[in-house]
Design a protein around this nucleic acid. Structure first.
Lengths: 144, 144
DNA sequence: TGGAAGTTTTAGATTAAATCTAATCTGACA
DNA sequence: TGTCAGATTAGATTTAATCTAAAACTTCCA
């Protein structure tokens, strides 16, 4: 991954490029596995033990606020994160909680005014079901 | 609220109608405020202190599993719940976390097969922005 | 009616996720 | 070099939710 690109993207969000912040952003850009905050902290801390838990969480919060990283809340599980490279929808597996990317397409939505609300962002979709792996496991399980 | 209707709806989900379970379901059907689990427990426990925290949470879980209650995960906040009377979308306020109902409409989505996934449910939408109250507060704040 | 088997509930302990605290460090720039 | 806002830290704390093991109910059949 291009270090300059990461630095630039941090600065475009008004964030200074510190080693810890860089590590969090780089991890997210290099892995499209939608890790939880705990997984990000563990990976970053393993690579460089100077990064503490609070710092990993603080930086994650800052990156989300700056719009560089997207947070996906999943019912009954820890939140998951991904670098917001291109706009896309998500798929969440009911069994293993795995989050996968899905292609972006526009969804029609009511206008803000008609609802009495001031700001209204296009919602990203979260589809739900069983991922290929869990669907297979589930099928073999029901068969026996 | 019709007690018989609540009892029937519990039984339609394969759940026995115990006083505690009834209280949780009744609270959700009588209040469309999308309470958190903690708020539900407090309300139910206040009305009848025989219902413990674990019971409120257990029953909530059972109701969600039975498809009678919907859980809405919100980033950085406790999950919220509502009785699944009619299908609808949701709006979440970025500032106060308030959840509001929005009318249902179909959203086009890719078919399961094209994605290699076995089961794929229609996603309910979550719109995000500022609710009327917070939008007003925010505007008056920026003005000063 | 008795009582075995299953279900539900309970108080309190525990876990998990994330944030807070207050002290310390860093580095840009005067 | 000195200053100071911003960043980081370890560890404590908070919050949300679940677990545990015992007790209390229901059901239902003899």
């Amino acid at each position: 991954m291009d270090a300059k690109a990461i630095k630039k993207s941090l600065e475009s969000g008004g964030l200074r490029c510190t080693p810890q912040r860089y590590a969090v952003m780089a991890f997210l850009m290099e892995h499209d596995i939608h890790p939880t905050a705990a997984e990000i902290f563990e990976a970053v801390n393993r690579a460089d033990p100077r990064c503490s838990r609070a710092t990993a969480y603080n930086n994650l919060r800052d990156l989300v606020q700056a719009g560089l990283v997207r947070e996906v809340a999943v019912e009954g599980r820890a939140a998951r994160f991904d670098a917001k490279v291109m706009r896309h929808h998500h798929f969440v597996c009911d069994i293993c909680g795995r989050v996968e990317d899905m292609d972006w397409y526009d969804v029609p939505h009511p206008s803000a005014e008609s609802l009495g609300k001031r700001i209204l962002r296009q919602s990203e979709l979260i589809f739900r079901g069983l991922c290929a792996k869990c669907a297979q496991w589930y099928a073999s399980r029901s068969a026996s």
